[in-house]
């Protein structure tokens, strides 16, 4: 049986792992390669690396880091941050990344989803959406690391991205990110029930029960978290044992 995936996320800034609360107040959380190797050993199902300060001059640093990670890690991993062109994707894949994650660049120019899917396969195109529930009760797409609001509904953007060839959606709720109060179950369930591709829920995972909720009520295919793993508040083996005991299909 296909299992639900637990995905630690490593936010990378200047080659170090960092983690913020509600997208700000960054704290250092250690060496990304060391952490990644530890998570792989502990049974993480995949890893995500997001270069949150990606700039042109830092792209070389990122590809070198990806290469080091790829040599160490025997599970799939996704790399995101500042990816705009086919050349960007090609370099990361050649250095051993399995999937790439795109966000703002895809919103500005949705045709890159199509061209990346055509050239590298949908399976390696992860569309990341940062979303926030506004006072009107609707979930809107945010860009540039959550700094810029758009008037686009998350459901509409996700649907369009799937039509263009996105292979997975990494959905981060800005209302929940860093709060450790649980995932955004409603919008996750809405996307998962209406889209034919896997949904990775992100933002708000603080304890084992939150993961159970997002896999059941939230209908997520995978759940991503960062700080609770980095700061050793929740160990991956304990989380997976808990989920397995609760009847969730999980890789032990």
């Amino acid at each position: 049986m296909l299992t639900k995936r637990i995905i630690p996320c490593l936010d990378i800034k200047d080659g170090r792992t960092v983690k913020g609360v509600n997208f700000t107040e960054l704290r250092d959380a250690g060496d990304p390669i060391e952490l990644a190797a530890l998570y792989a050993l502990q049974g993480a199902d995949e890893l995500v690396f997001l270069d949150i300060t990606a700039t042109v001059e830092k792209r070389k640093t990122l590809s070198e880091l990806v290469n080091k990670i790829a040599h160490k890690i025997n599970i799939p991993f996704t790399v995101g941050g500042g990816i705009k062109t086919e050349e960007d994707v090609s370099v990361l894949l050649q250095n051993g990344a399995d999937k790439i994650s795109i966000n703002t660049a895809a919103y500005i120019d949705p045709t890159i989803i199509k061209s990346f899917a055509k050239n590298f396969g949908s399976q390696c195109v992860v569309l990341a959406i940062d979303t926030k529930c506004e006072a009107d009760g609707n979930w809107y797409v945010y860009l540039n690391g959550g700094r810029q609001k758009t008037d686009t509904l998350t459901t509409e953007w996700a649907k369009k991205a799937v039509d263009l060839g996105a292979g997975e959606i990494l959905l981060t709720s800005m209302n929940h990110d860093g709060t450790k109060q649980g995932f955004a179950l409603d919008i996750t369930a809405t996307l998962s029930a209406t889209l034919p591709i896997p949904i990775i829920a992100s933002g708000g995972g603080g304890e084992s029960a939150h993961f159970y909720d997002v896999f059941t009520t939230g209908k997520a295919d995978a759940a991503l978290a960062a700080s609770i793993f980095h700061y050793k508040e929740l160990a991956i083996p304990d989380l997976k044992k808990y989920l397995n005991n609760k009847g969730i299909s999980i890789r032990l």
């Binding site: 049986m1 296909l2 299992t3 639900k4 995936r5 199902d45 949908s122 399976q123 292979g167 997975e168 998962s192 029930a193 209406t194 034919p196 591709i197 896997p198 209908k219 295919d221 995978a222 890789r251």
Partner: peptide, 29 residues
């Protein structure tokens, strides 16, 4: 609708024949 296509993730493999699966337990992921 909950069965997404493509299949993406960890699934079990079983009913092994041949040496390709030596020392691999049945139902490994």
């Amino acid at each position: 609708p909950t069965l997404k296509i493509p299949q993406m993730g960890w699934n079990t493999i079983c009913d092994f024949k041949t040496d390709l699966f030596t020392s691999v337990p049945e139902n490994s992921f």
